[in-house]
Computed example of a mutant assay.
Amino acid sequence: MVRGVLVGVVLSVALTGAACSSTPESAPAPSSASSSPTPSPPTSASVVVPPSTTPPAAAPVTVDPAGRALDEYLGGMAAEQQFRGAVEVRRGADVLLRKGYGNADVGTATPVTPDTRFQIGSLTKQFTAAAVLRLQEQGKLRVTDPVCAHLADCPPEWAPITVDQLLTHTSGLYNYTEAGEDEAKPFLNRHVVPQELVDYVKGKPLDFTPGTRWKYSNSGYVVLGVLVERLSGVDYATFLRQQLFDPLGMRDTGYDTVRSPRANGYTDWTTPGEDDVSLYFAAGGVLSTTGDLARWNAFLLADKPGVISSTSLAAMMSPHADIPGTQVHYGYGIEVHGGGADLTYAHGGLVTGYRCENTIRPSDDLSVTVLTNLSTNDPASISGHLVELVGHP
């Protein structure tokens, strides 16, 4: 059984959650055409292209005979107030389970459906990593480049840090979501410009010499998001939509600060609690649905359509660093667990009011996505149990 391991994603941003993950590690990717700096950044660092406002055709609830045990398990969890959210389990083209449990809005008793959007926290990192690899293919950077080659006003201490080290959490950058309540106050309950977060991190000493250790850092992915904007000349939301989401048909996925419809987030069964998604930016600000993430998983499994090259995809999913104290390795925005028939790729996400886990097992073409709007859920354990229940064919 595979369980996501939540590593060092402490949220102490004033009682909130951090754009978080499960377990991780690092490594370089193939370098493509090199290139020189950089078009000017977009004028509005957080101009957002919202997901489609046209309601999708309602996704039917699906409980395949092979998925009945999964539904019974989740239904029992929901009845005991231990789970609320949406789940999709697929084996290849077969949908074993696609269903919502509990309420998207407790006050109005609006139910979760398979179409409900959720904040996905650090699952965002997979899209940021793919965006960086896309820029590499376009000759606008190499993952082996020093970050200071592409970042304005780079602190001297950052000179040894490479793009690869940002992708793999080996840069030593202070993790801004570990800030204490007093320090975090200026960033809370308002729209945050990414450069504000970068400037805050610039004022902190490195946690260790770049490349010598592994430590989860949301700061590295915020910096990567700034590089995406700077090198592409468009805002982060637009780049993801044009380069990844539209080609993959992920019309309900996006970096969306305009509050399009989604499940409300809760810190316990009835207490609402959400942060402005701009606080998490390219480290954890994307929202999505189980269906769209199943499309993403199908791309990861089959490399179709080719939104990034097969070489880039292989680099993204290859283990680059060992996470101390675990049997898990980290690629680019993705965890690698086990091997052989049990080889599994996974990542979790946590922001205030939302948690999730996304898992694929290539040997079975198995895809398991668990999205929740409850901070007290443990989707990594739930996903691990679902994988156990499905078993190998």
Rank of each mutant, 00 (worst) to 15 (best):
S309I: 04
S318I: 00
M317K: 13
G291A: 15
G306H: 05
Y330G: 15
V234K: 07
A298G: 11
S312I: 04
D276N: 10
G265E: 02
Y255D: 10
V258C: 02
D256V: 07
L287A: 00
S309L: 04
G249H: 04
F245W: 12
A237P: 02
V258Q: 06
P261F: 14
G284S: 08
T344Q: 01
R241K: 14
A314P: 04
Q243G: 05
A314E: 05
T267N: 14
D303V: 09
G285T: 14
G338K: 05
P261K: 13
Q243T: 11
L240P: 09
P324L: 06
I323V: 12
W269D: 03
D235C: 11
A282W: 15
G273T: 05
T326L: 12
Y236C: 01
L301H: 07
G340S: 09
S312M: 04
I323A: 03
R251P: 06
H329N: 12
W296V: 03
P272L: 00
D252R: 13
G333E: 13
G249D: 06
R295N: 10
D342M: 12
S278F: 15
L300Q: 15
T326M: 10
Q327R: 15
A321M: 09
Q243L: 06
A283N: 09
A341E: 14
K304E: 15
N297S: 13
A341K: 15
T267L: 12
T289P: 03
Y236V: 00
R262P: 00
Y236E: 02
L279G: 00
L300D: 11
S309C: 02
D322T: 09
G331P: 00
K304Y: 14
D256M: 04
G338H: 06
T326W: 09
R251C: 03
T344D: 00
A314W: 03
A263R: 11
A282S: 12
T271Y: 08
P324Y: 06
V336G: 13
F239H: 09
Y236D: 02
E335F: 01
A282D: 06
R241M: 12
D246I: 14
L279E: 02
G265K: 01
R259V: 03
T289Q: 12
A237V: 05
Y236T: 01
G254F: 10
A294E: 01
D342G: 15
F239P: 14
L248E: 01
F239D: 10
F239A: 11
P247M: 05
P305G: 07
Y266A: 14
Q242C: 09
Q327G: 15
